[in-house]
């Protein structure tokens, strides 16, 4: 089966500084893939390269086998790849509901997700729908960011560190939405620093270190030692 998303020898740089050195990665339809790695490993840079915020050679990123590495972010999104960016990035001038609506403004792929079903997924958002997005708690803002990305009914959802800075109970609430999201048909890539959490929800795991993939295996087969080595680069 053609992967929904594939990167081939993906490189990225900020000016002279190289951040990614040839990343090979593939995500199949319906799959949940976790990307782990320490701070500064290049996870967010990888997300930026896939979504078109950073542009690459066309063949470095493939969507259903078609080269999209050089497309701008808006066109990548319109192909059905939606992003929950690191730090949530809600629009301060928009209410909660407007933040959700703008996620589905350009692309409304046929599928389960609409304002109503997002409010069923995260009921608290319905009560707060007229508040400015940025007036919410961190966890609620994260729910808005996820709902906003779902509004386009993406076939691939990319989540960059959704648990960053949140309390454990809040993280649990947010991860409780994952089964419904997968059930609706989306493949999911989660970038996560919480390794245990990543292993418990993902089918496969990639570990990044200093811009390279240092480990790639099915989540069920990974040992703690292997992760430790891949994460910190130390021999075990």
């Amino acid at each position: 089966m053609t992967p929904i998303l594939e990167t081939r020898g993906l490189t990225a740089a900020y000016g002279q500084f190289k951040a990614l050195f040839g990343i090979d990665l593939a995500v199949s339809p319906g799959e949940c893939v976790a990307i782990i790695g320490a701070n500064g490993a290049g996870k967010t840079t990888l997300m930026r390269s896939i979504t078109g915020v950073l542009r690459n050679d066309p063949g470095m990123v493939l969507h259903r086998g078609e080269p999209i590495g050089d497309l701008p972010a808006d066109q990548v999104m319109q192909r059905g790849i939606a992003m929950v960016p690191e730090g949530r990035k809600l629009f301060p001038s928009l209410s909660v509901e407007e933040n959700l609506l703008i996620g589905g403004q350009v692309r409304r792929g046929g599928g389960r997700w609409s304002l109503d079903t997002i409010y069923q997924l995260f009921p608290i958002l319905k009560d707060r729908r007229h508040s400015p997005g940025t007036a919410l708690s961190g966890g609620q803002q994260q729910m808005v960011a996820i709902g906003r990305a779902l509004m386009s009914n993406p076939e691939l959802l990319l989540c960059d560190e959704v648990s960053l800075g949140l309390a454990p109970v809040v993280i649990r609430d947010i991860y409780a939405a994952l089964p419904a999201i997968r059930e609706a048909g989306a493949a999911v890539v989660i970038v996560e620093q919480d390794i245990a959490r990543a292993l418990s929800v993902a089918d496969r795991v990639y570990c990044l270190m200093e811009g390279r993939v240092t480990l790639h295996a099915p989540a069920a087969e990974i040992s703690r030692e292997a992760i430790h080595a891949a994460y910190f680069g130390e021999p075990t």
Partner: peptide
């Protein structure tokens, strides 16, 4: 809405499919 979102943050707006 697209005007306001783009004014807030053009990069995130582009992640919403807005040019």
């Amino acid at each position: 809405r697209a005007f306001r979102a783009t004014s807030d943050d053009p990069v995130t707006a582009s992640l919403m499919g807005i040019n």
